[in-house]
Amino acid sequence: MAILVYVEHDNAHLKAENLKLVNAASKLGDELHLLVAGKGCQAIAEQAAKISGISKVLVADNAVYEHQLAENIAELVAELGKDYSHVLAAATTTGKNFMPRVAALLDVAQISDIIKVQSADTFVRPIYAGNAIATVQSEDAIKVITVRTSAFDNQDESGSATVESIDLVKENSLSSHVSAELTKSERPELTAARVVISGGRGMQNGENFKLMNGIADKLGAAIGASRAAVDAGFVPNDMQVGQTGKIVAPELYIAVGISGAIQHLAGMKDSKVIVAINKDEEAPIFQVADYGLVGDLFDVLPELEAKL
């Protein structure tokens, strides 16, 4: 039986996560079908059809799917999913929102946040903020899975799958979209960036986050934050890196004024190279940092920008 993969998009852009998501799905070793659900999403489907290893892209293009609300998207995916061995989505806030509903409708478990495919029924996932790594085996007829995309490589884009419209309209009278307040940024997305520089409570206020702009510009970096910085209102919630925020694994992660609580480490400790800048030489962040610099960030950041 084939594998169904839910494509992450906002009707205008195909999200970078999809390449990694399909890479994870390709390790299951069967025919791959993508599902693009949304409104006016034909162009997304054409683009998704280029991802290597896909045989078919299904498009459910209808106004009822515009905001990809969990209530009817789950019904759509569950109905299609009945004919598949696996249903996968990225462990983004979209995937986390509707996929457990799909699992419940299919009366199967959901396996959350996998970081490795061991075989078609055995998967590896972090638990306890990444302080333990569990291997789980599922005997469910349909495996419903969310994928931690940061743990997988990008799939090539040299394919040419067929695109097929599906006429399956699930009305939704239970919920409706009211408004969105999206953070606008010219920078790369946190979860896709090659370099991430994050600030913590040590930044003291939102204004001081500007000290990181020049460095981020020079390195092509995304800017992230600890929970303390978000809770204090320095920066928006979507910048939070950690167990309960975004999980990142860039080539280079620079933690500035962040102590290194386990919940923060859970979101960044798989980065290739970690730099910590902190005035407290005992800060736990230094235990995971490849390069630690003990110093006052207000001296270090301007100097770093100048020397890059």
Partner: peptide, 27 residues
């Protein structure tokens, strides 16, 4: 549940790195 726990392992430990003296050394 139909999902069985096969095993639980500790995560790969990161080797603690070095402290650098200043920004020039870091760069």
């Amino acid at each position: 549940s139909k999902v069985k726990l096969v095993k639980v392992e500790p995560p790969a430990q990161r080797q603690g790195g070095v402290k650098v003296a200043d920004v020039a050394e870091l760069v």
